[in-house]
Write a protein that binds this DNA or RNA. Sequence first.
DNA 1: TATTGTTATACTCTATAACTATA
DNA 2: TATAGTTATAGAGTATAACAATA
Lengths: 149, 149
Amino acid sequence: MTKIPEHHPSPDLEGLIGYNLKRAYVTVSDDFRRALKHDNLSPRLFSALALVKAHPGLSQSALARQLGIERSGIVAMIDELEGRGYVIRKPVPQDRRRQALQLTPAGEEAYKIALGKVQAHEARLLGGLDAGQRDALISILQKIRYQKT
Amino acid sequence: MTKIPEHHPSPDLEGLIGYNLKRAYVTVSDDFRRALKHDNLSPRLFSALALVKAHPGLSQSALARQLGIERSGIVAMIDELEGRGYVIRKPVPQDRRRQALQLTPAGEEAYKIALGKVQAHEARLLGGLDAGQRDALISILQKIRYQKT
DNA sequence: TATTGTTATACTCTATAACTATA
DNA sequence: TATAGTTATAGAGTATAACAATA
């Protein structure tokens, strides 16, 4: 006997942006993790590297604001990246409260490799979208993100 | 002295679908929670109600598959919804391993009210999108979700 | 007074592994 | 053998609240 595929969504849910956003993110995130399993980089650690790379000297508080999370959550992330030798906390003489974050050469290299894998993962996973759809998607998502609520 | 707004994203990150999906989902999810705070319904409990509503008699395992999570995670969710009197677990005589889930009248009513609030929240939050953008977004997100990886 | 980094603590969501009862 | 529900347990990713050092 052939198995009947279970497929019974809720029309209410399927019509909601929030539900579809969440499910799509889980799909992309799972594939991201598989793609960077060997590098042992989660999406959030990768994002932290990307921001420190783009803004050498960034403080931990500024990184937290940029990622949209509390600064207390940054500590363990930077501990981890520093432990791997990817990032250093550099004292700032002009403001002794701060730690200026920057990538080490090993961090630069690890980021470069990871970025290639991330872009390959997205190209593979989102290969079904044409360039127009991809740009439209990013533009709409940014409109949502940057919206004042 | 005027404060300079901090705005230093990473070009790499801003170009990634995954990063934008995540950030957009957090925005929508936070607003959802604010909108349904009074009803004490999280996105996942709301989704569970929606699926039981759409498919009365659904088993817990089928609900888990539908939500894309493990069945062990469903137990506490249904405990909670049952405790509030929104859902009942009904024994199935033909298969005594199963519990058929269904909404109580109170659950139907709570869901109806919640659905209205959720739709209002999305209309408000996504008011900047025209109907075409909204449909395009849902269609692209579903394409990602339903993709075989 | 306000901000930075930090710690302690707790909560939400989810996974894994094992068990039992049924099929 | 396989599936349904369940429990115990653990992990990731957050938040809140407090504190010391510094601005």
